[in-house]
Simulated scan of single mutants.
Amino acid sequence: MEPRVSFITLAVSDLAATRRFYVDGLGWEPALEVPDDVLMFPVADKVLLSLWVEPAFEAEVGPIRRGAGLAPVTLAHNLATKRGVDEVLADARAAGATEVADAVERDWGGYSGYFADPDGYRWEVAYNPGEIGQSVL
């Protein structure tokens, strides 16, 4: 198996709210949209973010674990500058993102903050000056 990711699939509770956030709020263009079922966005070369309504997700993947706390996953959007990080966090806030954590200097040498989409999935918005961070730009 080649080391690559083709789809990142997340279950969402309200596809209409998710659409409003990503399409109307952040300005993303769907690659595929099936009302009341799935919404897909190109997020990198040959990588799609696939957002499924919970019943469709569970029908294919299995039961969703529910409970207190955060989903143990983050998505990251890296940028070339700290200013870019602040701008994207401001855009997310304007789009209705909840729980926006302003960017701060991190122990690992970068600068990042977080926002949550309508289902609470955390997006890290980061400037990483290191070699690995620069490799994704």
Results as ranks from 00 to 15, higher is better:
1 M>Y: 05
1 M>I: 10
2 E>W: 00
4 R>N: 05
6 S>V: 06
8 I>L: 10
8 I>R: 07
9 T>Y: 00
9 T>N: 02
11 A>S: 11
11 A>H: 03
12 V>T: 03
12 V>R: 08
12 V>W: 04
12 V>H: 00
13 S>W: 02
13 S>D: 09
14 D>Y: 00
14 D>V: 05
16 A>S: 10
20 R>F: 03
23 V>F: 03
23 V>W: 02
24 D>S: 15
25 G>V: 02
29 E>L: 15
32 L>C: 12
34 V>K: 05
35 P>L: 11
35 P>C: 12
36 D>A: 14
36 D>H: 06
37 D>L: 15
37 D>I: 08
37 D>G: 07
38 V>G: 00
38 V>M: 11
39 L>E: 03
40 M>K: 08
40 M>P: 02
41 F>T: 05
41 F>G: 01
41 F>L: 11
42 P>V: 09
42 P>I: 06
42 P>S: 12
42 P>W: 12
42 P>R: 13
42 P>F: 11
43 V>I: 15
45 D>R: 13
45 D>T: 13
49 L>D: 03
50 S>A: 14
52 W>H: 13
52 W>G: 11
52 W>C: 09
53 V>K: 01
53 V>E: 04
53 V>N: 04
54 E>D: 07
55 P>R: 12
55 P>Y: 09
56 A>Y: 00
56 A>F: 06
56 A>R: 11
57 F>T: 05
57 F>V: 07
58 E>R: 05
60 E>F: 14
60 E>M: 01
61 V>T: 13
61 V>I: 15
62 G>M: 11
62 G>H: 12
62 G>A: 08
63 P>N: 14
63 P>E: 15
65 R>G: 12
65 R>Y: 02
66 R>I: 08
67 G>K: 00
67 G>F: 01
67 G>S: 10
68 A>W: 00
68 A>P: 06
69 G>E: 02
70 L>T: 12
73 V>G: 06
73 V>S: 01
73 V>D: 06
74 T>Q: 10
74 T>P: 05
74 T>H: 08
75 L>G: 08
76 A>S: 15
78 N>D: 10
78 N>M: 11
79 L>Y: 09
79 L>R: 08
81 T>P: 04
81 T>R: 06
81 T>Q: 14
81 T>N: 10
85 V>R: 11
88 V>W: 03
93 R>E: 08
93 R>F: 08
94 A>C: 03
94 A>V: 03
95 A>N: 03
100 V>S: 11
100 V>P: 02
102 D>I: 04
104 V>N: 07
104 V>A: 14
104 V>Y: 05
105 E>P: 12
105 E>W: 05
105 E>G: 07
105 E>S: 15
106 R>S: 12
107 D>K: 07
108 W>S: 08
110 G>Y: 09
111 Y>A: 07
112 S>A: 12
113 G>I: 06
114 Y>R: 14
116 A>G: 04
117 D>T: 04
119 D>W: 01
120 G>E: 02
121 Y>F: 07
122 R>N: 04
123 W>A: 04
124 E>L: 04
124 E>H: 03
125 V>M: 02
126 A>R: 10
128 N>C: 11
130 G>R: 12
130 G>K: 03
130 G>F: 13
130 G>H: 08
131 E>D: 15
132 I>H: 14
135 S>E: 09
136 V>D: 01
136 V>A: 04
